[in-house]
Simulated assay, not measured.
Amino acid sequence: MHTHTGEKPFACERCEYKSSQLANLQIHTRTHTGEKPFACDTCEYRCASSGNLKKHMRTHTGEKPFTCDTCEYRCRTSSHLKSHIRTHTGEKLFTCDSCEYRCRTSSRLKSHMRTHTGEKLFTCDTCEYRCRSSSHLKAHMRTHTGEKPFTCDTCEYRCRSSSHLKAHMRTHTGEKPFTCDTCEYRCSRSSHLK
């Protein structure tokens, strides 16, 4: 009934968090205590809720119960599916307060916000490289390992990041998505436009 009334009678004693359900408050309280009572029996993963453990177990089983109605995409979580569906609808719910940037996921917005703050949370263990997102760090780490997991379907080109592959594919398609506001110049890379 609390979900209908909007009432949230269960309040955290340490912060302003309130919930309509006691179980949610109990899970929230673990963010303060650090308690992680749910453990994976396959690896060392531990978490604060049974729901998170259930999601984690799919990394071992390979189960992907969430499917897209439009394409063959399958995933492990409903949040990933919601985010994927926006690739079909073009919907960009998350907006930056400082500029006109819009995106489909909260994690992308968080990463984008660091372009304004200059914050670089992710650091390389091997060198002094620092960056704003885990995906950039992953790509950077491949400069040390030499790994090039992204391959072109048309030629023998291999690279370290999906963005590099996307840019390379334009050499085959001839696509020039970057346009100048002042003249008719069009190009395949944002760096060329800059």
Results as ranks from 00 to 15, higher is better:
155 C>I: 07
74 R>S: 10
18 K>V: 07
5 T>G: 09
112 H>V: 06
23 A>P: 01
131 C>M: 07
131 C>W: 05
176 K>E: 14
70 T>A: 07
142 R>W: 10
101 Y>P: 10
129 Y>P: 01
52 N>K: 13
81 L>Y: 02
52 N>A: 14
141 M>K: 13
38 F>M: 02
101 Y>E: 08
5 T>Y: 04
104 R>C: 11
129 Y>L: 09
154 T>H: 07
5 T>V: 10
114 R>V: 08
180 C>T: 04
65 P>E: 08
148 K>S: 04
82 K>C: 11
76 R>D: 09
85 I>Y: 01
15 C>L: 10
42 T>D: 02
163 S>C: 08
48 A>D: 01
87 T>F: 00
187 C>G: 01
5 T>D: 07
134 S>V: 06
101 Y>V: 12
82 K>I: 11
157 Y>W: 06
65 P>A: 12
122 F>G: 13
68 C>P: 04
40 C>M: 06
109 L>S: 07
66 F>G: 14
68 C>H: 03
5 T>I: 09
168 H>K: 06
81 L>W: 12
144 H>D: 07
20 S>H: 06
7 E>W: 01
123 T>M: 10
99 C>D: 04
170 R>F: 04
90 G>E: 01
155 C>N: 00
13 E>N: 06
40 C>P: 04
157 Y>G: 00
34 G>N: 04
145 T>I: 08
19 S>R: 04
159 C>K: 05
11 A>V: 03
22 L>W: 08
68 C>M: 03
142 R>L: 09
16 E>A: 12
188 S>R: 14
35 E>P: 00
158 R>Q: 13
156 E>Q: 11
191 S>V: 10
107 S>N: 14
2 H>K: 08
109 L>T: 11
25 L>R: 02
11 A>L: 05
91 E>H: 05
90 G>Q: 02
23 A>I: 14
10 F>Y: 15
5 T>W: 08
32 H>G: 03
56 H>K: 03
120 K>Y: 05
98 S>Q: 15
69 D>E: 14
135 S>L: 08
89 T>E: 09
68 C>Q: 09
9 P>R: 11
1 M>S: 15
169 M>A: 03
19 S>F: 10
22 L>C: 00
90 G>V: 02
16 E>P: 01
176 K>Y: 12
193 L>E: 03
99 C>E: 10
65 P>M: 05
147 E>P: 05
14 R>A: 09
185 Y>I: 00
92 K>Y: 06
